[in-house]
Amino acid sequence: MIAHNIALKIIFFSQTLVGVLGNSFLLGLYVITFFAGPRLRTIDMILIHLAFVNNLVLLSKGIPQTMAAFGLNNFLDDVGCKLVFYLHRVARGLSLCTTSLLSGFQALTISSGNSKWAKIKTRVQKYAFSFCLFCWVLHLGTNGSILVYMKGPKGYKNITKIQDFGFCSASLNPSFTTLISASIISLPDVTCLIIMIWASSSMVLVLYRHRQRVQYIHSHNLFSRSSLEARATQSILMLVSIFVYFYSLNSVLTVYVQFAKTNHWLLNVSTFLAACFPACSPFVLIFNDSQVSKYCLTIWEKIKPPSLY
């Protein structure tokens, strides 16, 4: 039992720390590039938003969960629990929205040789900020029910059907109305997942055709440009695959925990899975997106001291 508690402390603390550092590095890199480097692309603006909301996911759930693992179970009151869980659910939904926008935009980018897709891409570039703002409004509104049923760890004294998160608790009242509300809340998530599946399928098809086509291309410049675009697409495909994998596992586990007897081990696994994508995503971009390396090199060229020779 002691070894289990120590492992929980190390896992949650390490996951939160590493994820926040990775996302903060990307945020800092893009902000510095925005003010001092080359002009940022639309996709970079989307990545800035993704890194920001991923940090919110990690901070809103990782820090309380780490404190709970260290034995601090009563550090939040009712208001604190409501705000922490509300912020986490909003940030998690925004991460899903932004990832779907990212995958959809990249699918349009590599398909923009077609005039119809090129026009749609131009519209997406124009309204990308408006879409992110719409996602904020949507998730701030649809997750309002959390402010009703979340309480502090001792908030439900006389109710038997509660879900104890260690540092907060929630009432469990399965009913037809609850099912309808959950379906409405899940509708934007399902829509985003459908967009990601469509975009991923389109990108895989385009990459397959590209691989066949480049075998007959002998121009070095054209090959280099298309290869960079293919590498960026592969990075985003990797991001989407990681997101869908962990999101699906966490969703299934969350539904099981809500309808089964509360199990702290399963709750800890669910929390870990929910934070896997926000913690992993910045490093996928850092090590696979050549544009990140280009921005780092540009900033270094600007700040390095002049040579004495």
Rank of each mutant, 00 (worst) to 15 (best):
I299W: 02
P278M: 07
S103H: 00
L179N: 07
V137I: 11
I43K: 05
L56C: 15
K294D: 12
L147W: 04
Y208H: 14
I217L: 13
P153W: 01
K154E: 15
G22Q: 01
F223H: 06
V18L: 10
N5T: 01
V84D: 03
G19I: 00
G104P: 02
L29R: 06
C276D: 02
R211F: 07
L249D: 08
I48Y: 01
W198H: 14
G155V: 00
F223M: 09
V57S: 07
W198C: 14
L138M: 14
I286N: 08
C276Y: 02
L187A: 15
G19M: 03
P64C: 03
Q15D: 08
A170Q: 03
T178N: 06
G166E: 07
H218R: 14
V18P: 02
R92D: 08
L94Y: 00
L249T: 02
V57E: 08
T122L: 14
S201K: 10
N5W: 02
Q258F: 08
L297C: 09
M203E: 09
K151D: 14
L96Q: 02
C132N: 10
L50N: 08
P188W: 04
I184D: 06
F277H: 14
F277C: 04
K154H: 13
V148L: 15
K304C: 07
L76M: 13
W198G: 12
L237G: 11
V252M: 12
A260G: 06
I48F: 05
L8P: 00
N55D: 13
L76I: 02
L228K: 14
Y216Q: 11
I63Q: 11
S227N: 11
H139E: 10
I11T: 09
V204L: 15
L8T: 07
K121I: 02
D44I: 00
K154T: 13
N23D: 01
A69E: 09
S171F: 00
L8V: 01
P38V: 04
H4W: 05
S130H: 12
D164S: 09
F167Q: 06
L138V: 13
R213C: 08
L29F: 02
S248I: 03
F75W: 05
L239K: 00
F52A: 15
S241T: 12
L56H: 01
C132G: 12
T42I: 03
S248W: 01
W300E: 04
I32K: 11
I43N: 03
R39I: 03
F167V: 08
T66I: 00
L228S: 14
S112E: 09
K304L: 02
S112I: 06
K154N: 15
A7I: 09
N288T: 13
L308M: 12
C296R: 09
S219R: 09
Q234C: 07
N221H: 12
F129Y: 11
H49L: 05
Y256L: 13
K294S: 13
F259R: 11
S235F: 07
G71F: 02
I43C: 04
I185M: 13
D189H: 15
P278Q: 06
G28A: 10
V18S: 04
L239Q: 12
F131H: 05
K9D: 10
N288W: 08
I10K: 04
R213A: 15
C81L: 01
I63E: 08
Y295E: 11
A69D: 13
L59D: 07
